[in-house]
Design a binder for these strands. Structure first.
Length: 589
RNA sequence: CGGGGCGUAGCUUAGCCUGGUAGAGCGCCUGGUUUGGGACCAGGAGGUCGAAGGUUCGAAUCCUUUCGCCCCGACCA
């Protein structure tokens, strides 16, 4: 049993101005954490307990799924990364160090990096030992502090520069085994987030810099999330918007018949889709072609989508470039002879077509017949433009962002979009890391052939999960911790700490609850009842037992669930048994 | 990195426009009265006004620079 006066729970009546969203305010107000710098937090005793609870649930589920815990260094030699496949792609997010003290070397070239994740370490670590197919079928995990130079840390623990992550890595001998591992991890994730008391969905996700075959993200629906999730209740389809598709373009769609000759027309001052959609032109956005230029690995390329569509940059990774960025206006002018607002992909209208490594058309532009697009000349557009007759498209693909209401690819019903917080991400990686010869993660199979291990990797943002729980579980009075992750399960609010009889009873009831499996906090502070009630609500302990002189005279204590309705008056004689009963009920639920 | 905002006591902030050497609420300390939903009375401590430079007789206030923080965007496993 923890006496309140022996721990440190600095609650705040008002929230510091740095916090904008509820979970961030409550993180500070309930005395869970304090900011040390932007995106850097110290966990106070209550926050540390919640982290430990969440970590422990994670361990239990990982162990149950046959993963084994290990611990790798957070500071790793940069060479491990330099030898890997994504040094250039991830450098920007990595903190680096060049030794320390007398050994410090001033250099652009870092000697060590602070690990943002550990594929680059675990692969050679395990690869050096593993030799046979008999060594495969292993999954490792660790719970560790990670470092990422987030461009803009925000919302407290939600997007921090230093955060606690569970990262797991699997090595399998063949594709079937790897898929089996992936699904076993997916079920472990389902159980983990459910035990944390979260409402969540798993969605198909883009693999990003990580690479790999396929992946799922675990998302907690919340207004303040950084991601958009596309979903359909009827079919169960759910995907990150970066990945989501729709049945907007029917299969086997034939090109629209051209109805007239293409012609150039004057559009003075028109540089946006919106202006062309208004008087005097009145050309709807979905009858316009939008041409955007990007640079992929130093090569310029163009993407054409409908005027009403947004390019989804994540989908451009299917084009095979490693690093993609929007082109600058100068780069655009060199190839097109015009600036954004007047661009088009009509055959023969380019200043220098050879500067374009490719022109890629989104499939949905085939829905447009006799459209309008820029003429690559200032204040000029072209109309009656038809895709296959007039546009210079090298290949088609899915490059657009799905919009709400489009038909679900599975059920055809309208898709919905919601904001969500990403708390977990699993990838079936394939051999991206293991096939790297420097990492040596190969093995000799039963057929005597040497093969790279099939890998998977599995992340959970432990500290982010804590804040996601607060975001989802709170009311106007404070946090409402789900039982399993609560820093304490029960708080005994001792209204008269000077009354010997009350103290004795508090200790007895506390011990009874502990015996039933609860972590108990005893509010033994001097102070007015109102303050104690407010604090108990704010820090969100699920079960509250009030012991006061008034109740003792009546022969009762008062028992109340933070989530539930009215307080229950329990006769002193029944109190131990009743509390033990509530504790086991809550633990089971 | 672009745009916007803010730095005054532990927290929330007034004062800044129009220069005259800092005020409140909460919290904290002492004493008293209180004691079942953030009590009341009396007294008290606590601020180089983020930092540096400049203008001025005089700067929290005006100017310049700089640092930090927050928000939007870009970006983001």
């Amino acid at each position: 049993m923890q006496n309140w006066s022996n721990t440190y729970i600095p609650t705040l009546k008002e929230s510091p101005s740095e916090a904008e969203i509820e979970s961030h305010k409550l993180l500070l107000r309930a005395g869970l954490a304090r900011k040390i710098g932007s995106g850097l937090y110290a966990y106070l005793p209550l926050g540390a307990r919640v982290l430990e609870k969440v970590s422990q649930i994670c361990r239990e589920e990982m162990n149950a799924a046959n993963a084994c815990e290990l611990l790798m260094p957070a500071v790793v030699p940069a060479d491990y990364w330099k030898e890997g496949p994504r040094w250039n792609a991830t450098r920007e997010i990595m903190y680096s160090v060049n030794g320390a003290g007398a050994n410090e070397k001033p250099s652009e070239d870092p000697q060590f990096v602070l690990g943002p994740t550990h594929e680059e370490i675990i692969t050679p670590l395990f690869g050096a030992e593993a030799a046979s197919y008999r060594d495969m079928g292993r999954t490792f995990y660790q719970i560790q502090t990670k470092f990422r130079n987030e461009i803009r840390p925000r919302y407290g623990l939600m997007r921090a520069r230093e955060f606690i992550m569970k990262d797991g890595y699997s090595f399998d001998a063949n594709d079937e085994a790897a898929s089996e591992t992936y699904h076993r991890m997916a079920s472990a994730y389902d159980r983990f987030f459910a035990r944390c008391g979260l409402e969540f969905i798993s969605v198909e996700a883009d693999t990003g810099v990580m690479g790999g075959d396929f992946s799922h993200e675990y998302m907690v629906p919340a207004e303040v999330g950084d991601d958009d999730v596309v979903y359909c209740h009827d079919s169960g389809y759910a995907a990150n918007i970066e990945k989501a598709t729709s049945a907007l373009v029917p299969e086997g769609l034939a090109d629209a018949e051209p109805v007239g000759e293409m012609e150039k027309f004057e559009t003075p001052g028109v540089k946006t889709i919106e202006k062309l959609a208004k008087e005097p032109y009145n050309i709807p956005a979905d009858e316009q072609f939008k041409t955007l230029l990007f640079v992929g690995d130093d090569k310029l390329f163009a993407v054409v989508v409908r005027g009403c569509d947004q390019v989804e940059e994540a989908k451009l990774s299917s084009l095979g470039y490693e690093l993609i960025r929007p082109a600058t206006v100068d780069e655009i002018f060199e190839a097109m002879g015009a600036y954004p607002g007047s661009l088009g992909a009509v055959k023969g209208s380019f200043k220098d077509r050879t500067k374009l490594d490719g022109i890629y058309g989104d499939e949905a532009i085939r829905l447009v017949g006799n459209g309008t697009t820029g003429a690559n000349e200032k204040a000029m557009h072209m109309r009656n433009v038809n895709v296959s007759r007039d546009l210079d498209i090298d290949s088609f693909g899915d490059f657009r962002q799905v919009q709400e209401g489009e038909p679900c690819p599975k059920s055809g019903k309208p898709l919905k979009i919601a904001r969500a917080i990403e708390v977990g991400h699993i990838f079936k990686l394939g051999t991206k890391y293991s096939e790297n010869e420097k990492y040596g993660a190969t093995f000799t199979d039963a057929d005597k052939e040497v093969k790279p291990a099939i890998m998977g990797c599995y992340g959970i943002g432990i500290s982010r999960t804590v804040q996601a729980i607060i975001e989802q579980c709170h009311d106007k009075n404070g946090i409402r911790w789900p039982w399993n992750v609560a820093p304490y399960h029960a708080v005994i609010t001792l209204l008269d700490p000077d009354m010997e009889e009350a103290v004795t009873l508090a200790n007895e009831l506390g011990e009874a609850m502990e015996a039933a499996g609860a972590d108990v906090l005893l509010d033994d502070r001097d102070g007015r009842p109102g303050v104690k009630f407010k604090d108990a609500d704010l820090i969100g302990i699920p079960l509250r037992v009030v012991i006061g002189g008034r109740g003792l005279k009546e022969g009762i204590v008062e028992v109340k669930l933070r989530n539930g309705g009215d307080a229950e008056k329990v006769a002193l004689a029944d109190a131990k048994a009743r509390l033990a009963e509530i504790v086991s009920e809550q633990a089971k639920a």
